[in-house]
Write a protein that binds this DNA or RNA. Structure first.
Lengths: 229, 229
DNA sequence: CCAAAAGTGTTAAGCCTACACCCATGT
DNA sequence: ACATGGGTGTAGGCTTAACACTTTTGG
């Protein structure tokens, strides 16, 4: 674009793909969906799900399609955003590929693991064993997710349609790897407009006082101060 | 990539470009470098500088090249980062183009305006008149710059090699469009490790007590709390 | 001396943390 | 009864915003 001095019919051709970092939280584990490569390069290695962008697809649409194909999850309760674009020469030995990585944050879809697709606990995963540069992409996605919990309300997208404040807190604790004061956490969530909405129901977790349940609120991108202590 | 089920020799071909949102601050104005298009589509319109990515170039390298070509500025004092990738079908009428937009934050390079490249005050610019989707890209870049001032020390990259705290404050005031308390701002900068380093010199701005000068400190990506009040 | 900008001191308001304490349930 | 997690109250410490005040220059 703005290709002054270039003949538009003589540009270097690229393949463009989308790759997805699909994260879900099953406290205290945080899991990523990986697929086993059936072809070279990287045959037998685990990789992020992804695929070529069609000629008439936009980037987010291509990512949505991959997400639906892998999880069958309805898009509305899932957060999906562009992460970063990776395009180093040689990252794919076959050809010049630019991959637009996306980050998806979803509640446990309950999709069972199969031979060629499985959820992996990121804590016990050696990133350097992933195919291509997918270890680096995954690291970037994890960092983004950690950062976003702090100043957005996106943690709710890791929860089901109805959840307790304790379950929400468990998401933060899993992602940040620390423990939070239940009392103070409760207050911070409550005082943040649009974070959660009361359902009026309660849910018993077996032992202890039953907790009120909530649904994700309308706010998604504002900046509440959920501090890390 | 991870193109299971696709023949790697039969992928949809794309052109990949980098476009640059090059911002500089001349308080109280914040300026962006635009080039006038000499070819269709969008002939005569202003556009972000950019160009095709070469087959052996990585994305950041391609952006650095464009930056050097347009400003002659040395890279070390300039902040350059990937912004977002834009790839909607039809954004360029000639072909399917994916543009990896980058954001550059630089101190006034003193490059004079020419017929086909000029610095524009973003406040008095109608974004909808830019070529392609460059108005949207510019808006994204401005938002990113505003946000990054709050929790990084990148404001120094808008300043020259030696600057006063007042000049640094003027950067914040220009970007955020508000005025800050000089006393409190001074303290916040000083108590943030690695934000600025004293030169030992002072500089008289004509009237008033001469200010000590500083150089950018080693920190670039930490999180000092420069609040917006 | 006066205006103006740099820089320091001070104080009151608000926020956050830590923890005490009560509530409601399963066993 | 007691253990367990949910939820509220509260005191102390810390940060912050607002502004008074001193410093150092040019006119």
């Amino acid at each position: 674009m703005s290709a002054d001095g270039y003949d538009p019919h003589d540009f270097p051709p690229f393949a463009v793909t989308v790759d997805l970092v699909m994260l879900t939280v099953r406290p205290p584990s945080i899991d990523v969906l990986l697929v086993k490569r059936s072809e070279n390069p990287g045959r037998g290695k685990w990789a992020l799900p992804g695929g070529f962008v069609g000629h008439d697809q936009d980037l987010l649409g291509a990512a949505e399609g991959k997400l639906a194909e892998k999880t069958g999850v309805r898009i509305d309760r899932t957060h999906l955003e562009q992460l970063e674009t990776f395009g180093a020469p040689g990252r794919d030995s076959r050809m010049r590929v630019v991959s637009v990585a996306h980050l998806a944050m979803l509640s446990d879809p309950g999709v069972p693991d199969t031979d060629d697709a499985a959820w992996h606990n990121v804590g016990s995963l050696d990133l350097s064993t992933l195919a291509f540069d997918h270890g680096e992409i995954l690291r970037t996605g994890l960092e983004r997710a950690k950062a976003k919990l702090e100043y957005t309300t996106l943690a709710t997208s890791f929860c089901g349609p109805e959840f307790t404040i304790g379950e929400l807190r468990a998401v933060y604790e899993a992602v940040w790897g620390i423990s939070l004061d239940p009392a103070n956490f409760h207050r911070k969530v409550m005082k943040t407009d649009g974070f959660v909405e009361a359902t009026g129901r309660t849910e018993s977790a077996g032992r202890g006082r039953p907790a009120r349940t909530y649904a994700a609120g309308p706010a998604t991108d504002l900046h509440p101060p959920i501090s890390r202590s």
